[in-house]
Design a protein around this nucleic acid. Structure first.
Length: 443
RNA sequence: CGGGGUAUAGCGCAGCCUGGUAGCGCAUCUGGUUUGGGACCAGAGGGUCGCAAGUUCGAAUCUUGCUGCCCCGACCA
């Protein structure tokens, strides 16, 4: 992509409304713009990252056996009356009336709707286990939205729903999502710790919140420091096998959020030098809630002996839009964002320092074309801004590598290649530059 | 939902107390000089001062009401 033809509105000053670093950087880097309280437009650079996060989520959901569908944002109030949540949910739910005066709502979650889909299409235990998910915009009318996309009113969420014949099978489904989550966050460069959690309005018995440690996190968390070093299951993990040893390993040491923490238990079970007391961002939550929705809504299947039983369900959320904030909170420095390569909007920024100069133009154009042809995503700065402004923009948007082509180096046939994270720079020939980037960025 | 702020050019702000018809910095545009870490000089464009009433000869400024946004708390993915 040529920067001269892209839409990347950079802000030099610090926007006054942004309190936390991820919000500031997302505004400054031209990723988002606020449309009203807690509601944002996603500009091209932000959308690119959002899509990359979705892709990782989709790949790991597929690996764990979940099947993607798409449910609407607007739901009928009648469904919610069946579960009893229409009255229970409160003012967080945005209620809408259509032209026929029918009560509608902008969905804050989809348990009722998925249960409806299930009950009208599945009858037999032979169709289980089943895990259906979608990635869709949700709306919760938070009293006080803040922190940019971390706590918006409109937000993009992956929510999966598992259906099983009994509790034992449901726990196996739960474990599959649990392991998928460990892998999902790891691939985005995050260390997410599963913590004991409250079940909130969704209800249920078994639940974990996946927490990323960050100073700007919304809640206080307490956990064992070993979690920071624990190995995440690899690509080869067999989701058809018994995953309970992995889950047991990842839940053996103490970890809880402030809502449910028992300080006595924390101090008794974790040695003093291993205790972490920090702040955390919730990036996902898993629930097993049994027949809470299937029973009142009549989602039943026939068992092997012909009797009908309500299915056991679980739901599993990932805050997709919120993850951008969490990733930036965990990956930035004084100059801007430092994207992990897996979610970076582009892999490489090629900076032409002297547009119009025959030598730099041809060298930069050539490298740009070759990298794109090799499947590497390049943002090519072919604008005629000053060098300092170009460097500052590249640092701000945080692409993993910067390649600088200017008359000074190119008269000796060399580009300067900078690693954004380490700040290390080296002078390389065009061939060496190409080879280094290809080997660093392709698996 | 309680408490506290704030609203003036695209962004950040001054002007308001003490009423007289709007200004600064950045950004934008033009010309010139520059050019390896957010350049400099000169010039230009851009605002029904959040909305609505009221007071007044006259309101960005005073009064009342409404609305948006931000911060703290409670709540929450």
């Amino acid at each position: 992509m040529r920067l001269s033809r892209y839409f990347l509105p950079i802000i030099k000053e610090t926007p006054k409304e942004a309190e936390i670093v991820s919000h500031r950087l997302m505004l400054r880097a031209g990723m988002i713009r606020q449309q009203s309280a807690g509601i944002y437009s996603w500009l091209p650079l932000g959308l690119k990252v959002l899509r990359k996060i979705e892709r990782i989520v989709e790949e790991e959901q597929a690996r764990a056996g979940a099947v993607q569908l798409l449910m609407p944002t607007i739901q009928s109030a009648d469904l919610w009356r069946e579960s009893g949540r229409y009255d229970a949910y409160g003012k967080e739910m945005l209620r809408i009336t259509d032209r026929h005066d029918r009560d509608m709502l902008f969905g804050p979650t989809n348990e009722e709707m998925i249960t409806d889909i299930f009950r009208s299409n599945v009858r037999s235990y032979k169709d289980l286990p089943l895990n259906l998910y979608h990635i869709q915009w949700k709306f919760r009318d938070e009293v006080r939205p803040r922190f940019g996309v971390m706590r918006g009113r409109e937000f993009l969420m992956k929510d999966a729903y598992s259906f099983d014949l009994d509790q034992d099978a449901a726990v196996e489904s739960y474990n599959r999502m649990f392991v998928a989550y460990l892998r999902t966050y790891k691939r985005m460069g995050l260390t997410a710790i599963p913590m004991r959690a409250e079940t909130g309005p969704i209800g249920g018995d078994l639940s974990h919140e996946f927490i990323v440690l960050a100073d700007t996190g919304e809640s206080a968390v307490y956990c064992h420091s070993d979690y920071l070093e624990k190995a995440v299951p690899g690509e080869d993990v067999d989701f058809d096998s018994d995953l309970s040893p992995i889950v047991a390993d990842w839940t053996s040491d103490y970890a809880a959020t402030e809502d449910v923490v028992d300080m006595t238990e924390f101090e008794n079970s974790v040695p003093e030098d291993k205790r972490i007391s920090a702040r955390g961002i919730e990036v996902g939550q898993t629930f097993y809630f049994g027949t809470k929705y299937s029973a009142p809504m009549g989602a039943k299947v026939a068992t092997a002996d012909g009797t009908e039983v309500p299915v056991h369900m679980g739901s599993y959320g990932v805050g997709v839009s919120r993850l951008l904030g969490a990733i930036i909170e965990a990956n930035h420095d004084d100059d801007g964002i430092v994207w992990p390569a897996s979610v970076a909007p582009f892999h490489v920024g090629v900076v032409n320092l002297k547009v119009g100069d025959e030598l730099t133009d041809s060298a930069c154009e050539d490298l740009y074309a070759k990298l794109e042809a090799a499947g590497i995503e390049v943002l090519y700065d072919d604008t005629d801004n000053r060098a300092g402004a170009k460097f500052a923009t590249m640092d701000l948007i945080g692409l993993p590598f910067q390649v600088v082509g200017g008359p000074r180096g190119l008269k000796d046939g060399l580009f300067e290649v900078k690693d954004r994270r380490s700040g290390e720079k080296e002078m390389l020939s065009p061939e060496a530059t190409f080879n280094k980037l290809v080997s660093a960025l392709t698996v």
